[in-house]
């Protein structure tokens, strides 16, 4: 696993991908930091929570080639022929992408020191947002890895992960539309107005419950919810397992 991790992590810096991803992250985090700094008040928690919005841009960049590139070159045959388990391959690649995120996050660490140096505060509430940021990074990297596993094209992989991550950002809006649609359909089927409305609300709440952004929004207020972290880990593990199954499929479908 360590060999795969090392190879993948160093490969980010043997190509422009790692530098470009870090540059984009630096620019975006720098913009948020500067906007707060120029207002005379810096809340690192708000900065970190705002940075979640850019997973949709950065995650596809750093995960698009993780498995699809090997498929394209045909080197993925090594997964099946070397004495390394597929599990180790998947975990090693996720860890490499995750470590790149840690490197990117050094920008925010610098912002924290600057904030403290300029008389600002960095409380435990802000620390909570950093914790949840890395949990979300794990979840989205898992999604990106899955997108990379289902195709041999880096572009398609990036588009798929972009769409999935974008969808997670818009779940709450979709939930509203779905709730309204269910309400309308139920009403048109002759169901009583109160019941139809309750059905719409129930469906809306059920869909909105899946929104990772809504679950973690209050961390910036100092609210630390363990169940939100459990949710993020669960979804991350699910996509890792899906990735594992996609790779495993090649083994038995070839047989």
């Amino acid at each position: 696993m360590y060999a795969i991790f090392k190879r993948e992590f160093l490969s980010y810096f043997r190509s422009p991908v790692g530098y470009v991803a870090i540059a984009i992250f630096s620019f975006l985090s720098g913009f948020i930091f500067y906007a707060q700094f120029s207002d005379g008040a810096v809340n690192i928690g708000s900065e970190v929570i705002a940075l979640r919005s850019f997973f949709v841009v950065i995650v596809p960049i750093i995960t698009m080639g993780l498995l699809s590139e090997d498929k394209k070159r045909g080197t993925d045959i090594l997964y099946y022929t070397t004495p390394v388990s597929l599990f180790n391959v998947v975990v090693g690649k996720v860890l490499a992408a995750f470590t790149l995120y840690v490197v990117m996050f050094l920008n925010v660490i610098i912002h924290i020191f600057v904030t403290i140096g300029f008389g600002g505060t960095f409380g435990i509430g802000s620390f909570g947002t950093i914790v949840v940021f890395f949990f979300m990074a794990f979840m989205f990297i898992s999604i990106g890895l899955f997108a990379s596993a289902i195709t041999d094209s880096q572009i398609i992989s990036a588009i798929v992960s972009f769409i999935i991550i974008l969808f997670t950002q818009l779940i709450s809006q979709f939930a509203g539309y779905i709730g309204t649609a269910v309400n309308s359909i139920a009403s048109s089927l002759g169901i009583k107005e109160g019941l139809a409305s309750s059905m719409g609300i129930a469906i809306k709440n059920a869909v909105a419950w899946l929104d990772p952004f809504a679950k973690t929004q209050d961390f910036r207020l100092g609210i630390f919810s363990v169940s939100a972290l459990v949710f993020l880990v669960s979804v991350g593990v699910l996509f890792l397992y899906l990735t594992f199954r996609v790779l495993e499929k090649k083994r038995w479908s070839q047989s």
Binding site: G123, G125, G222, F224, S225
Partner: peptide, 8 residues
């Protein structure tokens, strides 16, 4: 129960 208030 496992939601904590870490605000200052």
């Amino acid at each position: 129960a496992l939601t904590f208030d870490f605000s200052d």
